[in-house]
Amino acid sequence: MRAALPLVLGPVLFGLSFGVFAGTAGMGALAAVVMSATTFAGSAQFAAASVLENGGTVVAAIISAVLLNARYIGQSIAAASIFPGGRLRRFLESQMIVDESWALSGRSGRFEWAILVGAGLLLYVLWVSSTAIGTFVGDALGDPNDLGLDAAFAALFLALAAPYLRTRKALRAAVLGGAIALALLPFAPAGVPLVAASVACLLGLRR
């Protein structure tokens, strides 16, 4: 639990603003809350809502969100071995994988089930409830990025990446992955740079 405390403010503010934003995008309050409860991945939810708000098609909204979340395939494979119990339990607990819980749970260099599920559960409750509140509050709320929360999350990922980068092999792969993501940013739709970056993991095949 304590490990997740620095993460509380972000999801609450972003959850609130997703609730507000979904309203302006004409999604309806119930659909917004159900999306937070089933998709549970902020960036994809914002992406889908913003496509709808800008008059995009259903297919475009789906593709952008699905591409953004494709990174979870890699994350769930990386953490696969820590989930105990039968298939149903593993299925349910695997839904607690989000960037923040996943990244935090690997901070000792080995993924830890208690951190992933504990932090994930806390984030889940905050995310769904703050979305619900956001749909009522409406526009009273400012932009959470005025508080620099977007930069704070980049710093979170950087701090969690740092311990991995001590071996030359990991450092080389990470630099290549970062370069791929950067090179694709101006051209590819959101989500694609992250998925393409994972090609750099194939450097692991080299001896």
Partner: peptide, 30 residues
């Protein structure tokens, strides 16, 4: 290969979260 997912994905997230924009590289206060 799987062992490299964490460092690669985390650094890629740093990149997109720091300079990512709407299909552009956006160098701003972040």
């Amino acid at each position: 290969v799987v062992d490299l997912i964490a460092p690669v994905m985390l650094v890629a997230l740093v990149v997109t979260q720091t300079v990512g924009g709407n299909e552009e590289i956006s160098v701003d206060a972040r």
